[in-house]
């Protein structure tokens, strides 16, 4: 059986702008291979500048890889196949404010992917937009709203609605959860988990928060300076002894954490 998504030796190099043609290319991502199964969540972790954003952008099709192959359901996915990619792999950006077009209503923005990827009459489109909005916890009325009238959490919901409206198999979320307020973050994580259960979506999330990763990821891929140094199931990465770099990424804050919740459980039992 083939994997939902399989990456074989994806890599990316680039030449700095205005450099000489013969100057050395810098490496953003060294050859990376991984697989993703349907309905699972893969977390990509690493420090700033470790290439995790580059990898997610290559998967989502924002950038072209310099080399390597990507297989979707066992079939090769080229960078140029934008139609097939955008029907199956969608992206949610870090800043919902910037990733929504301020000049269009929510409905118009949700219609955009339908216009170019689905052949359906306008009444059906409207219906699909309504049902998608409800799926992400908004109202049909929100279709007439402009982004500036929504709160951060609602904007992020719209961004997710735009991602799932084409019924994709994979959603790539690039740091989409970190900068949110606690209550909104919890709501969005719940929403993503619900959607995963209902629609069988696979997520590829990029984040540096070990707590979120522990909660939602099935597998973790760890990058260090553009190089993949670990790719394993969350359980095993957490329980087995790891390199200090991985330990630091995964177990940061545990000291701080015991200080807050550890005490509280002690007090409650008193």
């Amino acid at each position: 059986m083939s994997h939902l998504l399989e990456a074989v030796d994806l890599f990316k190099t680039f030449r700095p702008r205005r450099a000489w043609p013969w100057s050395k290319k810098s490496v953003a991502l060294e050859p990376t291979s991984f697989t993703l199964e349907a309905g699972q969540t893969l977390a990509i972790m690493g420090e700033t500048g470790s290439g995790k954003s580059t990898l997610s952008k290559i998967i989502a099709g924002v950038e072209a890889p310099t080399g390597g192959e990507l297989y979707l359901n066992g079939q090769k996915l080229n960078y140029a196949q934008s139609k097939r990619r955008c029907q199956n792999i969608r992206m949610v950006f870090q800043d919902s404010d910037k990733s929504l077009n301020q000049q269009l209503t929510v409905g118009q923005q949700l219609e955009e992917p339908l216009l170019f990827n689905r052949d359906m009459p306008s009444s059906e489109r409207k219906q699909l937009i309504n049902s998608t909005l409800r799926k992400v916890g908004l109202l049909a009325e929100h279709a007439a709203f402009y982004p500036h009238m929504l709160s951060t959490g609602q904007k992020q919901r719209v961004a997710i609605a735009r991602a799932i409206i084409l019924d994709p198999q994979i959603v790539v979320a690039d740091e989409a959860l970190v900068a949110l307020d606690p209550s909104v973050r919890a709501q969005i994580i719940n929403l993503m988990l619900d959607l995963q259960k209902d629609m069988g979506i696979s997520y590829i999330i990029v984040t540096h928060s070990p707590q979120i990763v522990k909660h939602i990821a099935d597998k973790i891929l760890i990058l260090y300076r553009g190089k993949m140094i670990a790719f394993n199931e969350t359980e095993r990465l957490l329980t087995e002894k790891q390199q200090p770099y991985i330990e630091a990424l995964l177990h940061e804050h545990l000291t701080n954490h015991s200080q807050i919740t550890g005490n509280s459980s002690a007090k409650v039992t008193e």
């Binding site: 989502a60 924002v62 950006f93 955009e112």
Partner: peptide
């Protein structure tokens, strides 16, 4: 360069649109 254009590009929009 902005995210929302990238998002529209990923929606498969044509260049004229």
């Amino acid at each position: 360069q902005k995210d929302y254009v990238t998002a529209s590009r990923l929606n498969g929009c044509s260049n004229t649109y």
